[in-house]
Amino acid sequence: MAAICVFCASSNRIGAQHLDLATALGKALGPRGHSLVSGGGCVGMMGAVADGARAGGAHTLGIIPQSLVDLEVADTASDDLVVTSDMGARKNIMIERSDAFITLPGGLGTLDELFEVWTTATLDLHRKPIVILDPEGFYTGLWEWLNDITQTHFVRTSALAQVAVVTSIDAALDHIEEALR
């Protein structure tokens, strides 16, 4: 059983297909014996993945800064809810409490979280699997750009190899399970 951290959008102004993807990913965790680590919000894809995880029988751990609790966006239905002093502490605890990471579509916060776990993996501070779940090509442009800048040596090709880009929930979970064996 792995504690899988999911990075994703917390906006309520996104398309239904993104909410459906988050819900489906959450629902897939429990039957495969995994738990969810999330940013502790109850809105957008973050809320959908947590609701899906509980519907699928997975344990949910939400980690949220006090400032977002004050805005009344905390996932109070979480099995465990950790309230932190700030966003930096939130990110650190999410990384510490997770065995693997899946990134869904999202904005700046999602990218910040992805690049944090990816950077720390390239520095060999952890060896936890990192997956981008991208069934609709949301990250295609970013991935192409990152591949292009390997030619300038700003990014090593070995760093790109530390992230799996997949198009299905099963492929994401299969990759994590294989990497953790």
Rank of each mutant, 00 (worst) to 15 (best):
E72Q: 14
V83E: 11
N92P: 03
A100M: 07
A89V: 14
P105K: 00
R90M: 11
A74R: 04
A100H: 01
E96T: 13
Q66I: 14
G106L: 01
R54S: 10
N92F: 09
I63E: 00
C42F: 07
A53K: 02
A53N: 03
I95W: 02
T60V: 10
E72P: 05
H34G: 09
A58K: 00
R32Y: 06
G40K: 02
G57E: 01
A53E: 07
S78A: 15
L81R: 03
G52A: 07
D70V: 13
A55Y: 03
D99I: 06
E72R: 14
S38T: 11
A55G: 12
D75T: 04
M87R: 00
M45Q: 12
D79P: 08
L61H: 06
L104D: 02
S35G: 12
L36M: 09
S98K: 00
D79Y: 04
R32W: 02
D86I: 07
L36S: 02
S98G: 09
N92K: 12
F101I: 09
A77D: 14
A53I: 05
H34F: 11
R32G: 10
G39K: 00
D80Q: 14
S67T: 15
T60I: 00
C42P: 06
M46F: 08
M45F: 06
K91R: 13
H34T: 05
G107F: 02
G88S: 12
G88C: 09
T76D: 14
G88L: 12
G52W: 01
G44W: 00
T76P: 02
M94Y: 03
S78P: 03
M45Y: 01
A74S: 14
A55C: 12
A89P: 04
H34P: 08
D86N: 14
V43N: 10
R32V: 06
S67V: 15
Q66M: 14
A74Q: 12
N92Q: 15
L61R: 07
V43F: 07
L104R: 01
G57Q: 02
R90F: 06
D51L: 12
N92V: 13
R90D: 08
S85Q: 14
S38P: 10
M46A: 10
L71E: 15
I95T: 09
D86S: 08
D75Y: 10
M45E: 08
L104T: 00
R54V: 05
D79V: 07
R97G: 11
F101D: 01
T76A: 14
A100F: 05
I93W: 04
I93L: 15
L71I: 10
Q66P: 11
G39D: 06
V37F: 07
S38M: 11
R97D: 13
G39N: 06
P65I: 03
L108W: 13
M94F: 06
G107L: 08
L68D: 01
V69N: 10
R32M: 12
S78C: 15
R32C: 10
R90N: 07
V83L: 09
D79I: 05
H59C: 08
N92A: 15
R54I: 04
M94C: 12
I95V: 15
